Simulated scan of single mutants.
Amino acid sequence: MATPAQWIEGARPRTLPAAIAPVLVGTGAAGYLDAFVWWKALLALGVGLALQIGVNYANDYSDGIRGTDENRVGPLRLVGSKVATPRQVKTAAFTCFGVGAVLGIVLCATSSWWLLVVGAASLVGAWFYTGGKKPYGYRALGEVSVFLFFGLVAVLGTTYVQAEKLSWTAVAGAVAIGAIACALLVANNLRDIPTDTVTGKRTLAVVLGAGRSRRLYASLVILAFLLAIVSALATPWTLLALIALPLGFRAVKVVVSDAVGPALIPVLKDTGLTELVYAIGLAIGLALGG
Results as ranks from 00 to 15, higher is better:
residue 167 S to H: 11
residue 176 A to P: 05
residue 161 V to E: 13
residue 176 A to V: 06
residue 201 K to H: 09
residue 188 N to M: 11
residue 215 R to I: 02
residue 197 T to A: 13
residue 195 T to Q: 15
residue 193 I to S: 00
residue 169 T to K: 07
residue 206 V to H: 13
residue 184 L to K: 06
residue 195 T to Y: 07
residue 187 A to F: 09
residue 191 R to P: 11
residue 213 S to N: 01
residue 198 V to S: 10
residue 211 G to Q: 11
residue 189 N to H: 12
residue 180 I to F: 05
residue 167 S to I: 13
residue 213 S to W: 04
residue 175 V to Q: 07
residue 169 T to V: 14
residue 191 R to S: 12
residue 176 A to Y: 04
residue 192 D to L: 09
residue 173 G to S: 05
residue 217 Y to K: 03
residue 218 A to Q: 01
residue 172 A to S: 13
residue 210 A to E: 12
residue 171 V to M: 11
residue 187 A to Y: 08
residue 162 Q to F: 01
residue 182 C to S: 08
residue 201 K to A: 08
residue 183 A to D: 09
residue 183 A to L: 08
residue 199 T to S: 15
residue 190 L to C: 05
residue 202 R to G: 05
residue 164 E to V: 12
residue 166 L to G: 12
residue 208 L to I: 10
residue 199 T to L: 02
residue 209 G to T: 10
residue 206 V to Q: 07
residue 172 A to E: 13
residue 162 Q to M: 12
residue 167 S to D: 15
residue 216 L to R: 11
residue 218 A to Y: 02
residue 184 L to A: 06
residue 184 L to M: 15
residue 211 G to D: 14
residue 171 V to P: 04
residue 217 Y to V: 00
residue 197 T to H: 13
residue 209 G to R: 04
residue 159 T to I: 11
residue 205 A to H: 00
residue 183 A to P: 04
residue 179 A to N: 04
residue 217 Y to D: 04
residue 195 T to N: 15
residue 158 T to A: 15
residue 159 T to A: 13
residue 171 V to A: 15
residue 166 L to N: 13
residue 209 G to C: 08
residue 185 L to M: 14
residue 204 L to N: 08
residue 181 A to I: 09
residue 169 T to Y: 12
residue 167 S to T: 14
residue 158 T to H: 11
residue 160 Y to P: 09
residue 186 V to N: 12
residue 212 R to P: 08
residue 183 A to R: 01
residue 206 V to C: 06
residue 177 I to H: 03
residue 161 V to T: 12
residue 175 V to R: 04
residue 168 W to A: 10
residue 198 V to Q: 15
residue 172 A to C: 13
residue 194 P to N: 05
residue 176 A to D: 05
residue 191 R to K: 14
residue 191 R to N: 11
residue 214 R to H: 02
residue 198 V to N: 10
residue 218 A to M: 02
residue 176 A to I: 04
residue 188 N to S: 14
residue 166 L to H: 12
residue 208 L to K: 03
residue 185 L to N: 14
residue 166 L to I: 15
residue 191 R to D: 08
residue 165 K to F: 03
